[in-house]
Amino acid sequence: MKRAIVSGALAVAAIAALAGSAWAQSPTPGGMPPPPGMSLAQSAAMRFPQPVRVGDLLGRAVLQPVESQNVLGRVRQVVRNPDGEIMVVIAFGGFLGWGTRPIAVPVDAMVLLGQDMEVVAYTPDELRRFPTFVPGGSSDVADDTIIRVGLAKPSH
């Protein structure tokens, strides 16, 4: 009896340890990078860009599209660069918000994920090599402006 209970406990521990085949809930994980050879604009267009108010994006967490949802940074500002492209300025890197630096990521490389955003077109390593954003030449996009941003399903 006692032994049965103990071996039961051990069995559960063993079961817990074994748990884990690769079957994931999502046949297609969200936030996949664009297929090779496709431009950012083309891949963003496939993501059903939705209207969103710029002011509603400020302060949002920017996540890496992986199960652990690593925080890459926070949205600080939205700007239009000299070429007329909408860029999202992210307070990037650092630790718990300390020691970040601003980088400008094309909005077409990003998606909306509920109250957060994700960078789908660049890996964290690629983002680390982005130059630090300097405002010269770019113009701020006002909070009330409506821009269009693509979507992704959650990654897990």
Partner: peptide, 10 residues
């Protein structure tokens, strides 16, 4: 917009 989810990506 609301949050998107499905059994496939958008």
């Amino acid at each position: 917009p609301p949050k998107f989810n499905a059994y496939y990506d958008v």
